[in-house]
Simulated assay, not measured.
Amino acid sequence: MLEIDSLTKRFGGLAAVNDVSVSFARGTINAIIGPNGAGKTTFFNLVSGAIAPTSGKVVFDGRDVTGLRADQVARLGMARTFQSTTLFDTATVLDNLIVGHRLRTKSSLLDVVLGTKRLKDEERICREKARQALDFVGLGHVENRIAGDISQEERKRVAFALALSTDPTLLLLDEPAGGVNPEETVGLAALIRKMADSGLTVCLIEHKMDMIMNLADKILVLNYGEKIAEGTPAEIRANPVVIEAYLGSEHAAA
């Protein structure tokens, strides 16, 4: 589903991501971990088209997407969430989600002015997609709530739903469990597993190691912008380089 070849991003003399190569299989859950400043979010920015790499290649579902804009990559089926969930807080939850499917529509300004059938049909489809996504994440009951009034955990789920409403095949989730309590973390982990079980490929950045070790099929470890390890949770937990750089002895394999 996703192949990364020698991906590098330099900002002046700093290599934020340095010669990283990795592949993620279709339908799997993949975690990117590492200390703060390791280059994880920059890695996501490069993959999703938010910034262009200095060198290297990104191949998504068999297509070279290196250098494409974020909107172009999104139309090909890659969706992204961010560490901070930003919503239109004065709009309803449903209205926030209608925006997501707009990248699949064809209506123009002329359609809006004339109130064409195409515009009305696409508005109906966008609402249907939004409701389907809300139901998937377990929030169908809040569609008419003002987004600014929902909880942090619900905002996380709405962010998932917004990504799902774009009809993706690959989801990039940046710290999806950040700022929620342990019980809510378990619920979000179950939702991520549900996404993978439905056929989506998931890549996530996360610092909650218990969650990652129980959820991920494969883990990529970055440190100072470089890949220092990749493998299954058991392999990562037993890797002495990873233990020293990031995990600490409490996560070492017994």
Rank of each mutant, 00 (worst) to 15 (best):
E3R: 11
I4V: 15
S6C: 02
G13Q: 08
A16F: 07
A16T: 10
N18I: 07
F24L: 08
R26I: 03
T28K: 15
A31V: 06
G34I: 11
P35R: 08
A38I: 07
T41M: 08
T42W: 02
F43R: 00
F43N: 01
F44K: 03
V47H: 03
G49S: 14
I51S: 04
A52H: 05
T54L: 04
T54I: 01
S55P: 00
V59D: 05
G62N: 05
G62A: 11
V65D: 05
Q72D: 15
Q72I: 04
A74I: 08
G77F: 05
T85A: 12
T86P: 00
L87G: 05
F88I: 10
A91G: 00
T92C: 06
T92E: 09
V93P: 07
R102E: 12
R102I: 08
R104M: 04
K106L: 08
L110N: 14
D111N: 02
V113P: 11
G115Q: 02
R118Q: 14
E123F: 07
E123I: 14
C126V: 03
C126E: 12
E128A: 12
E128I: 12
A130Y: 00
R131C: 12
A133W: 01
F136Q: 01
V137Q: 06
G138H: 08
L139I: 10
N144Q: 12
G148T: 13
I150P: 06
E153Y: 12
K156D: 03
F160E: 04
F160H: 07
A161S: 01
T166H: 07
P168S: 13
T169D: 14
L171F: 09
L172Q: 03
P176W: 05
G178E: 03
V180Y: 04
V186Q: 12
M195Q: 09
D197R: 13
G199M: 12
L200Y: 13
L200S: 00
I205P: 01
M213R: 00
L215D: 02
I219P: 01
V221I: 05
G225P: 08
E226C: 08
K227P: 09
E230Y: 12
I236P: 01
I236L: 02
N239F: 03
V242H: 02
V242N: 05
V242T: 08
L247Q: 01
G248I: 14
E250S: 15
H251L: 10
A252H: 06
